[in-house]
Simulated scan of single mutants.
Amino acid sequence: MWVFYLISLPLTMGMVGVTLRYFAGPDVAGYVRFTVGYTWFCSLSIIILVPADIWATIVNHDRGGISFFWSWSYWSTFLLTWVVVPILQGYEDAGDFTVRERLKTSAHVNLIYYLCVGSIALCGVILLVNWGNNWSGGILGFAMACSNTFGLVTGAFLLGFGLSEIPKSVWRNADWTLRHKVLSQKVAEMAVKLDDALEEFSNAIVVAQVTSKQMSKRDPLRPCMNIIDNMLVQMLSVDPSFKPQGGKLGGNDMEYDTDEKTMADLRRRLKKAREEYYRYKSEYMNVVTEALELEDTMKNYEHRSSIGWKYISSLRPERKGKIGTSLDVIELIWLCMLRTQFEKLLAVLLGCMSVAILLAEATILPSGVDLSLFSILINTVDKNEVLVQVNT
Rank of each mutant, 00 (worst) to 15 (best):
V207T: 12
G138P: 03
I48M: 13
V3W: 05
A156W: 00
I112D: 07
M263L: 15
F4N: 14
V381R: 10
T258K: 11
Q214R: 15
S212N: 13
D259R: 03
I307S: 04
E260M: 09
G246A: 07
Y22K: 12
I166K: 02
L338V: 15
E101D: 15
E165T: 08
L221Y: 03
V355C: 13
W72F: 15
W309R: 07
M144I: 12
N286G: 10
S354I: 02
Y284L: 01
G155F: 00
I227V: 15
R21V: 11
L79W: 02
I58Y: 02
E92D: 09
S136H: 04
T363G: 07
W82N: 07
G137H: 03
K193E: 05
G95H: 05
L387C: 04
E276V: 09
R172D: 15
V182T: 08
G368M: 02
D239E: 12
L79N: 09
P10K: 02
S306V: 09
D219F: 00
A347K: 01
W82I: 15
A145H: 06
S314G: 02
K261I: 09
V36W: 00
Y280N: 14
R316Y: 04
R218D: 10
F157M: 11
N148D: 10
M225K: 06
A94Y: 00
L80Y: 01
A52G: 10
N226V: 15
S313M: 01
Y113E: 01
T12P: 00
G308A: 07
K213M: 13
G246Y: 02
I139S: 05
H108Y: 10
L270V: 09
L373P: 00
L194K: 09
D27Q: 09
V59Y: 00
W135K: 08
E101R: 14
W135I: 14
L80W: 00
Q89M: 13
Y278R: 07
M1P: 08
K383Y: 02
N391R: 03
S67L: 12
T262F: 01
M235R: 01
F242H: 11
T297L: 06
M144R: 14
D96G: 04
N130V: 13
G162A: 03
L152A: 15
L115D: 10
L292C: 02
G162C: 06
A191T: 14
K213F: 11
D382W: 09
L88N: 02
S119K: 05
Q341C: 08
N379A: 11
E276D: 14
V16G: 04
G17H: 03
T262P: 04
R268M: 13
